[in-house]
Design a protein around this nucleic acid. Structure first.
Lengths: 208, 208
DNA sequence: ACAATTCTTGGTCGATCGTCCTACAATGGA
DNA sequence: TCCATTGTAGGACGATCGACCAAGAATTGT
């Protein structure tokens, strides 16, 4: 690995476009339409570049998608779940914050509705199964991480001893994914907030 | 409108394939991959016919999709929600049956996972927005029908007077859609059953 | 000044998309 | 028997897909 990370002056003709802004445009398009329904020409138009530049700068379409997904995950709209679980002290606090922020972020009209990880590759032809698998594994990994957090909470006494952490995690994952779908169907923040509170009411023991 | 509905003997060469079986094959494929990721050649191969026969018998691709969707809605895997709401005496009974049957049907390996109405057109390019809109409107109509059933239940005293029927319906719709997504991600019947019971625990008053 | 390097332009590649057409096969009615 | 009608076989249509290439432009290092 040779440096290259910093702003070391590179040889050759400099890029004429803002790489970060181009990725942001691609992210928005993939988020809105999904992987397969977004064509290279859709992308080049939105990114303001020609296909040659795209392939030089980003490789092929699946590679660009992975970069767009990483950009989503690093943005405020994509990292709020990870932040909730790393910053909240209790398991209930983390789940509650996850759902309440989802209710606010999913229908926000300043970006495509719902969660990109949930919606970007649900309908995919066999030729692009790798992308579908990538997102599926990410969702299942998020579920497992939530289950692990609940198990830890149970050990610490935050969660009733007779509760089922895996079942609770699966339940909240389903609610979260359903909220994303509802946002895509036009659900408002107030509807999703009510959904979040009803879902939180199922927390065992009501002790919180 | 001139007769033509019954089995009146038609002129000309008879169809060489079973129309109902062909629609069933198309339904399965659309259900599995979604509208856009299913190509005409995919369809003709699965249906066992050539494209010429397909266009004569079914019109174009969106028309065939609508017929496949209708076949899904008339099948045991697609009509169980409607049956739950028409056959159960109480609002809670209908919602409970809807979720419990979804937990059994969504992951059934004898057919594609989840609900076709929910998953068949989530990622669609603008050219096919009509299909996406069709399914979205169907989902929203189902939600409104559930809300109406809960309002009726509230008038009949089945549901606590201070409960919010629209919010409850939106909540159970989100859970239902989330369960479909989880099934697509590999959730088992036992996981989905636990999710259903946790969701039902949020029913107001616990009086049921 | 010149070479090495990198990016942009513009176009081409084979494959596949949904749709339709023509030629032929198989049936019912007259 | 012959015609009208309908379905099938096979291929062609223009458009678009993702990917890549050659030529030229713009920059840095020597």
């Amino acid at each position: 690995m040779t440096a290259s990370s910093a702003a070391a002056p590179r040889r050759g003709r400099p890029r004429a476009f803002d790489r970060e802004a181009a990725v942001a445009a691609a992210t928005r398009l993939f988020w809105e339409r999904g992987y397969e329904a977004t064509s290279i020409s859709d992308l080049t138009e939105a990114m303001g570049i020609r296909s040659g530049s795209l392939y030089v700068a980003f490789g092929d379409k699946p590679t660009l998608f992975r970069e767009a997904l990483a950009a989503y995950g690093a943005s405020p709209y994509g990292d709020f779940v990870a932040r909730a679980f790393s910053e909240e002290a209790t398991a209930f606090g983390a789940v509650a914050r996850m759902l309440r922020e989802a209710a606010r972020i999913f229908p926000d009209p300043s970006h495509p509705a719902g969660c990109m990880t949930i919606n970007a590759a649900t309908n995919v032809s066999p030729a692009n199964a790798e992308v579908q698998d990538l997102l599926r594994e990410q969702r299942n990994a998020n579920l497992e991480a939530m289950a692990e957090r609940l198990r830890a909470g149970q050990r610490d006494g935050e969660l009733a001893a007779d509760a089922d952490p895996a079942a609770l995690a699966a339940y909240y994952a389903a609610v979260f994914q359903g909220m994303s779908q509802r946002a895509r169907d036009g659900a408002t923040e107030s509807e999703l907030s009510l959904t979040a509170e009803l879902a939180l009411g199922a927390w065992p023991g009501t002790s919180r």
